[in-house]
């Protein structure tokens, strides 16, 4: 059986990570920005699992589990802040939260 080389995992995860970061920059909706952040973090999980199968170890999967938990915690805090912003200002776009500049 032919196994998938490590390079393939690397390329997939770097492309996904790049898409996530790109989304964080170009997306305007606050919730979509959070979703892009999740995509970037999950891209790393792909690489961890790929590296694990390449090295025949399990450490990477443990790290991936921690990342999943942390991404959830960060999303919870982020959604809380978005709700607080929406209550005070009724805005949901990154274009409109630019009071502080310079």
């Amino acid at each position: 059986m032919k196994t998938i080389p490590l390079e393939a995992y690397l390329i997939v995860s770097i492309v996904l990570f790049g898409l996530g970061v790109f989304g964080m920059i170009v997306r305007r909706n606050l919730v979509t920005v959070l979703m892009s952040m999740e995509l970037a973090l999950n891209a790393v999980n792909v690489l961890f699992v790929g590296a694990d199968s390449h090295l025949s170890l399990v450490d990477g999967q443990i790290f991936a589990l921690f990342i999943i938990a942390l991404a959830a915690a960060e999303a919870a805090v982020g959604l809380g802040i978005i709700i607080a912003i929406f209550r005070l200002r009724k805005v949901d776009s990154t274009d409109e939260i630019t009071d502080m500049r310079g």
Partner: peptide, 26 residues
């Protein structure tokens, strides 16, 4: 606003650290 900006840029940092650790591990 400060909290949201800090969260988003901070989690981009988290992502970079995680990707760096993945490369280190590989």
């Amino acid at each position: 606003e400060a909290g949201f900006k800090y969260l988003i840029i901070g989690s981009a940092g988290t992502g970079m650290f995680a990707l760096g650790s993945a490369f280190y591990y590989a």
